[in-house]
Structures are given as C-alpha cells and as structure tokens.
Amino acid sequence: MSIINNINKAFDHRIRLGIMSVLMVNESADFKTLKELLGATDGNLASHTKALEKENYIVVQKSFIGRKPNTSYSATTSGRKAFKKHIEAIEKLLGK
C-alpha cells in the first residue's frame, strides 16, 4: 500500500482530527468537553461525530446524569488503528 492510501480521508478535517486526538488519550469524552476543547459549535461537532460514527471509528454512549441526557464518545479499536496509521502516514510524508 502506498503512503497516499494511508492518508485517511475520514480524518482530513480539523474537527475530526481533534475528536480522534482527544479520544486516543481518554477512555471517553462527553459532547460538552469535546466542544470546549475543539472550539466547535453544536451542529458542527454533531455532524463530524456522526461521520466518524458511520466509519465505525467512534461509538456513542447515551446516558442520563440526573435528568439531563449526556452523550459521550469513545474510540473503537478500528478507529484507534486507523488513526495511528493516518499519523504514521503523515509523518512519513513529512519525513521525505
């Protein structure tokens, strides 16, 4: 497989890259935390989490804290693998 193939289109956006970065080093992160860390709007973040969810790179857990619904995300094993590959590809690309 060539390097270009390893550059993953799914991560080729600042917000999606950010979501994955946070989830790589945290067991899970809730919507509000991600929003604050990435400086994204509700709609923006929601559409990007949905895109990553569709790729099976992250999973959503919905629960309630008291009466408030709480949505949190965590990276799947395949998501972690794909993200690692993506970073390695970038590093190789830059190394040349």
């Binding site: 600042r14 890259l17 950010g18 970065s21 946070v22 790589m24 080093v25 945290n26 992160a29 935390t33 860390l37 990435l38 970073i87 970038i90 590093e91 830059l94």
Partner: peptide, 11 residues
C-alpha cells in the same frame, strides 16, 4: 500534527 499533540496534551 501540532494540533493533535496539543489536544492530546490538553485533554
């Protein structure tokens, strides 16, 4: 890469 690093660090 810079962004990834800083986010990982922050969170």
């Amino acid at each position: 890469l810079t962004e990834i690093k800083s986010l990982m660090n922050k969170s």
